[in-house]
Amino acid sequence: MYGPFAMNLTGSQRSVKRLALLQVAPAAVFWTAFFLIPLAILVRYSFFEAGFLTITPAFDLANYQEAVTNGLYREIIVRTIVIGLATATLVVVLAYAFSYVVTFVFPRRRELLFFLVMVALFSGYLVRIYAWRTILGEQGIVNSLLLSTGLVDEPLRFLIYSRVAVVITMTNILLPFAILPLYSAMQNVPREVIEAARSLGGSGLAVFRTVTFPMTMTGAKAAFAFAFVLTCGDYVTPTLVGGTNGIMIGNVIADQFGVSYNWPLGAALAITTMVAVLVVFAVVSRLMTVVAR
């Protein structure tokens, strides 16, 4: 730590830092050029003026005003957030229970079970949404099963082209994504702490409430954020299984960049929705912290 050694140390630390900057540079340039700048341009577009098939640079809050005050858009944004909350809650509860059971009840089978989840994760986004149309449709698998067993007299029509269909399908798509952080959170709970809590006389429930649950809260929040944000931003699922009742804000935004050709309004709707989603998530995250305490 003295004399030439100190010099040497700081010298090598500086070269480590220089190397690190060099190594991160390509990714940083790519990220700035194709992620940060595009998002910044999108924000700028949200202030532009849109005419009939024209877009004029301006600084105008009219698009935001339209996004917030137009009753239709407001209704669809609220509906999107409700569907997002329902999906994220369902996803986190299922993923949490699954990860818990795999980790603490069947630890010896965990490799196989996790492997099956990975298969589902990579088994095709569009295709799975489409498959749910076959499963939930009027002549679909669920309905023909219900009809043939005589449980219902006519097919359940709310199963397809509805909000229920969107929630079921999105839950299916996002469940593997949510299992990843929760599974890893469960694996990271030190067994010794659980043993210690047990040996001090804690019942199963008490150990869960005071040890496992608080220690896996960060994982649960990450999973919830994932599921909530991605559901609110989806438009393929509502397009294919949502019907008219299940239209979400993603459909409206995608339309502005397609047939309607009103990019400024689309940008303003996207940004308004993202802000609303972040605010709602902040509230949920706070609630989860309170519950875990």
Binding site: F34, F35, P38, L39, I41, L42, Y45, V229, L230, C232, G233, D234, Y235, G250, I253, A254, F257, W263, G266, A267, A270, M274
Partner: peptide
């Protein structure tokens, strides 16, 4: 969301 990436890249 991929939709946000998609429209940002479009503009």
């Amino acid at each position: 969301p991929a939709l946000l990436l998609g429209i940002a890249l479009t503009v």
